Amino acid sequence: MPDVIMNGPAGRLEGRYSHSKLPNAPVALLLHPHPQHGGTMNNRVVYTLFHAFTKRGFSALRFNFRGVGRSQGTYDRGEGELSDAASALDWLQTYNPNASSCWIGGFSFGAWIGMQLLMRRPELDGFLSIAPPANMFDFSFLAPCPASGLIVHGDRDEIVPEASVTRLVNKLSAQKDIKIDYRRVEGANHFFNEKADDLGRIVDDYLDVALSKPAGAAAG
């Protein structure tokens, strides 16, 4: 899994990239938790998502937002981080110009950034949103949400109340032609400590179904 350095809006961005051996392989971009609270691309939840895609033949990229690890720049309240994610997606698409589909996945702060990118990039076919911080950040931009996806939340999340995520899910589920698969992980806190395996099984189950449908990304 090679280290990669990409050009970002605020300087170099550090990433880890796994290139699929399959022709026209689909691609996935994975986004990490809040940079000011210890979030990095090596977060266990982010790696769980990364591994779920790579073992299904995706070319997958995870990277550090500006100011994290070897990525240059400083924290920019989400605005700069969204630009970082867009640049990372550009890089991923440059190396995979014939990708059969494109997915986004994010954890906590990364879920918020990922959903914003979903609104701006119509080539994104699906999303995985883990513990989206619906109580801390505004998700009202998802009107309408452009793609179906998976939302996962721990029922013992001490940072994001379950009620705020449920309201988000209900709002998205009411939109036409959008299906939100909402899964709760029993006993899981915000970081899924001791529950990473449960999260992995949920992600695996969702992708197995989503990618097997004719309209699903990898089926093409």
Rank of each mutant, 00 (worst) to 15 (best):
residue 168 L to T: 11
residue 31 L to M: 13
residue 76 D to F: 06
residue 69 G to M: 12
residue 138 D to M: 07
residue 29 L to T: 12
residue 212 S to N: 13
residue 220 G to N: 14
residue 87 S to G: 02
residue 76 D to N: 13
residue 194 E to K: 12
residue 153 H to T: 00
residue 159 I to D: 08
residue 12 R to W: 00
residue 50 F to A: 12
residue 149 G to Q: 11
residue 68 V to L: 10
residue 184 R to D: 00
residue 134 A to F: 07
residue 216 G to W: 09
residue 114 G to C: 15
residue 161 P to H: 03
residue 39 G to S: 07
residue 219 A to R: 14
residue 118 L to E: 08
residue 67 G to L: 13
residue 40 T to R: 07
residue 108 S to D: 10
residue 72 Q to L: 08
residue 54 T to N: 13
residue 196 A to M: 15
residue 38 G to Q: 12
residue 61 L to P: 03
residue 37 H to V: 05
residue 10 A to I: 00
residue 147 A to Y: 05
residue 5 I to W: 00
residue 109 F to D: 12
residue 204 D to L: 04
residue 201 R to L: 12
residue 179 K to I: 14
residue 8 G to Q: 04
residue 146 P to T: 08
residue 171 K to H: 10
residue 2 P to F: 12
residue 214 P to M: 10
residue 90 D to K: 15
residue 109 F to E: 10
residue 136 M to N: 02
residue 26 P to L: 06
residue 112 W to L: 14
residue 16 R to T: 11
residue 20 S to R: 09
residue 17 Y to F: 15
residue 136 M to K: 09
residue 153 H to P: 06
residue 216 G to Y: 03
residue 30 L to G: 11
residue 166 T to R: 14
residue 176 K to A: 14
residue 181 D to C: 04
residue 66 R to M: 06
residue 5 I to S: 15
residue 130 I to R: 01
residue 36 Q to V: 12
residue 197 D to E: 14
residue 143 A to P: 02
residue 90 D to G: 02
residue 71 S to I: 01
residue 40 T to H: 08
residue 77 R to T: 06
residue 127 F to N: 02
residue 87 S to L: 01
residue 76 D to E: 04
residue 63 F to M: 03
residue 123 E to M: 04
residue 215 A to G: 13
residue 193 N to R: 13
residue 45 V to I: 13
residue 132 P to Y: 01
residue 172 L to V: 09
residue 105 G to Q: 06
residue 24 N to A: 11
residue 217 A to Q: 04
residue 16 R to D: 13
residue 18 S to E: 12
residue 111 A to E: 02
residue 167 R to S: 11
residue 112 W to Q: 08
residue 67 G to S: 14
residue 122 P to F: 00
residue 118 L to Y: 08
residue 107 F to S: 12
residue 15 G to Q: 03
residue 170 N to I: 05
residue 51 H to Q: 15
residue 28 A to E: 01
residue 204 D to H: 03
residue 119 M to L: 03
residue 129 S to E: 11
residue 65 F to C: 03
residue 103 W to L: 06
residue 156 R to F: 04
residue 102 C to K: 05
residue 78 G to A: 02
residue 116 Q to E: 09
residue 192 F to C: 06
residue 139 F to G: 01
residue 191 F to S: 11
residue 72 Q to Y: 04
residue 186 E to W: 01
residue 91 W to V: 03
residue 133 P to G: 02
residue 32 H to D: 04
residue 13 L to T: 01
residue 29 L to Q: 06
residue 147 A to M: 10
residue 79 E to Y: 08
residue 118 L to H: 15
residue 49 L to I: 15
residue 163 A to K: 02
residue 5 I to M: 04
residue 83 S to K: 05
residue 108 S to P: 14
residue 191 F to C: 04
residue 144 P to T: 14
residue 152 V to F: 09
residue 88 A to H: 01
residue 81 E to L: 13
residue 102 C to I: 15
residue 21 K to N: 08
residue 75 Y to P: 00
residue 153 H to V: 09
residue 47 Y to D: 13
residue 46 V to H: 10
residue 4 V to Y: 00
residue 153 H to C: 05
residue 218 A to S: 11
residue 188 A to D: 07
residue 206 Y to A: 09
residue 166 T to G: 01
residue 99 A to V: 00
residue 13 L to Y: 07
residue 122 P to I: 01
residue 15 G to R: 04
residue 56 R to S: 02
